[in-house]
Amino acid sequence: MQNKKRLTALGSLMLMLSVLSSICLAQTPTLDAALNEQVVMVPVGSGLFGVKLETTIFKPAGDGPFPLLIMNHGKASGNPHFQPRARFLVISREFVKRGYAVVIPMRKGFSQSTGLYVAGGCNIAGNGNAHRLMICGAGICTSAALGR
């Protein structure tokens, strides 16, 4: 009797995981080839403090160098790990048309980025600047601007 309950619970869990994974896969957007969209995992820090930030890059055609725009995302209500990858396609397209490379890193604990989300309160400028320093310190600013 106990084994039957365990098997039923295990079966229910597996079904739920299957449904959730198919929902997540169904929500993965196709990369926009016209904007040379790439998604990279940017390593930041090392050892116990190292994380990988899911980062979207859009670039104009050509070898560059390109001026660079780094866009920060907001936070939807709920668990930040369930927040989809920010793309901001309309504004990204406009900047790419004007010759800019656009980099949109997801903060720690958001979407597929590793690490724990730490709420920064309402200091929008401070949060954005800290994020810029983290991304540029990892070398993504130079790589994107040079067209690599």
Score class of each variant (00 low, 15 high):
residue 146 L to M: 15
residue 31 L to A: 15
residue 95 F to R: 06
residue 125 A to M: 04
residue 55 T to P: 14
residue 37 E to C: 10
residue 46 S to D: 08
residue 114 T to S: 07
residue 82 F to Q: 07
residue 101 A to K: 01
residue 76 A to M: 15
residue 66 F to W: 07
residue 9 A to C: 05
residue 82 F to E: 05
residue 60 P to R: 03
residue 44 V to F: 03
residue 12 S to Q: 11
residue 143 S to G: 12
residue 102 V to T: 01
residue 37 E to A: 10
residue 18 S to L: 15
residue 128 G to A: 11
residue 109 G to K: 04
residue 141 C to L: 04
residue 134 M to L: 10
residue 140 I to M: 14
residue 129 N to L: 05
residue 31 L to I: 14
residue 34 A to S: 15
residue 125 A to D: 06
residue 44 V to P: 10
residue 51 V to Q: 02
residue 93 R to Q: 10
residue 119 A to V: 01
residue 45 G to S: 11
residue 39 V to I: 14
residue 14 M to L: 14
residue 10 L to C: 06
residue 45 G to K: 05
residue 47 G to S: 10
residue 125 A to R: 05
residue 22 S to I: 11
residue 131 H to T: 07
residue 59 K to Y: 10
residue 86 A to I: 02
residue 19 V to P: 03
residue 28 T to V: 13
residue 112 Q to E: 05
residue 21 S to Q: 15
residue 63 D to F: 07
residue 85 R to S: 05
residue 46 S to Q: 08
residue 22 S to P: 06
residue 64 G to R: 05
residue 82 F to W: 11
residue 11 G to A: 15
residue 42 V to A: 06
residue 112 Q to Y: 04
residue 115 G to Y: 01
residue 97 K to V: 01
residue 49 F to M: 10
residue 87 R to I: 01
residue 21 S to M: 15
residue 23 I to A: 13
residue 141 C to M: 05
residue 83 Q to F: 03
residue 14 M to C: 12
residue 123 N to L: 01
residue 96 V to N: 05
residue 52 K to D: 15
residue 117 Y to F: 11
residue 107 R to Y: 07
residue 56 T to H: 07
residue 119 A to Q: 03
residue 47 G to V: 04
residue 135 I to M: 02
residue 135 I to S: 01
residue 47 G to W: 02
residue 19 V to Y: 11
residue 4 K to F: 08
residue 75 K to E: 14
residue 141 C to I: 04
residue 74 G to F: 10
residue 25 L to W: 14
residue 17 L to Q: 10
residue 98 R to A: 12
residue 68 L to S: 08
residue 75 K to T: 15
residue 74 G to W: 11
residue 143 S to M: 14
residue 35 L to G: 12
residue 115 G to L: 00
residue 83 Q to N: 08
